[in-house]
Design a protein around this nucleic acid. Sequence first.
DNA 1: TAGATTGTTAATCGATTAACAATC
DNA 2: TAGATTGTTAATCGATTAACAATC
Lengths: 211, 211
Amino acid sequence: MEKKISTAVVRRLPRYYRYLSELLENGIDRISSQELSRAMNVTASQIRQDFNNFGGFGQQGYGYSVEVLKEEIGRILGLDQQFRVIILGAGNLGQALAGYGGFARRGFIMSALFDVNPEKIGQKVGDLVVRDMKDLARYVRENTVHIAALTLPKAKAPEVAKTLTDMGVHAFWNFAATDLKLPSDAVVENVHLAESLMRLSYNIVNQSRDE
Amino acid sequence: MEKKISTAVVRRLPRYYRYLSELLENGIDRISSQELSRAMNVTASQIRQDFNNFGGFGQQGYGYSVEVLKEEIGRILGLDQQFRVIILGAGNLGQALAGYGGFARRGFIMSALFDVNPEKIGQKVGDLVVRDMKDLARYVRENTVHIAALTLPKAKAPEVAKTLTDMGVHAFWNFAATDLKLPSDAVVENVHLAESLMRLSYNIVNQSRDE
DNA sequence: TAGATTGTTAATCGATTAACAATC
DNA sequence: TAGATTGTTAATCGATTAACAATC
């Protein structure tokens, strides 16, 4: 069995992927851990350790093929697959997620958008039409749903998440300012913007400590 | 001089703050590290270590006053201050940030919203009117700006960030999918949604590893 | 072959957990 | 005073960095 990959590594993988994409766009097809190290502000040692969690992708004396490395990391991240994402809550944030085209390029298809507000239901948001939250169960039954993005008030989020897990959806991209209590086979990625902003203000207020 | 606080601790502080706020709302005015530990899924030991980075807020044999603790952590995070935030880019995400009322409660005042698109300029978004990006320099000169939220395309972000740092703004909430190269006295908090989504898909694809 | 750079083991560093004396 | 729980030191664990043998 494979060894457990730490969350620290998983946090870095998408960033590697992004850098490698940029390199490829700039026509750079080969790179050493040391060059990557300078560009990304991590140690070359860490880069090699990270990659070797998944087996070596490089060649001694040569370095890494940018294309191969990008491909492999993409595969590790699941970017060779397609994920169908439904968005719960058609507020500003839900609409922003629905409208942003960049996700589709990585295989994340925003496939439906739900809300309870009668004024929003039926409205177009990007390619999607806002659906009635009442139709959620039927939609999930009739369509494949890999990921549910929760962009609804924190009071509503746990209840909707519960409904969804009961119907077999077990991956959540959670923007609601609460920690979901979910079955152990559920996967959650939290995006707590208010907390992010507080970390920023911490660093502003305590800036002198770092210098 | 104070000891350096690790980023791991800083990441946890806003979550403590959120929990304490909830406890207070529920009328709970006293808690032990052990109770908090169970509620938050961290060890009691870690909680006490975290708090003691800033001096003890508790009382032996009693525990912590929820109100005092919340107050103190809030102060550490800078929530006793007001921060004026300008938003660069009035796309869906910029509008979402401008429209969300929750930030103001914590002292983050969304005070202006800029875009280059003539069709957007002049439109109302929540309480704000979209301003012309050309007026940015004048605005910054004439108004206090603590934080700049960058919700613009990654191609534009570095240039705008540069302009802002030159004008003395040195705290950035960066939503653009790029790493800003900024002076060392700048403070940056990145929110890379695409990377967040990739971590989620990683965990979906590699779920069996964890179980 | 010589030079370069990986893959991998060993050393170090830092963060988390455990333990317990201090004290309310 | 006895019981409870913090504050803090010591032990452990895991992640990062350094070093170098393997090898392209």
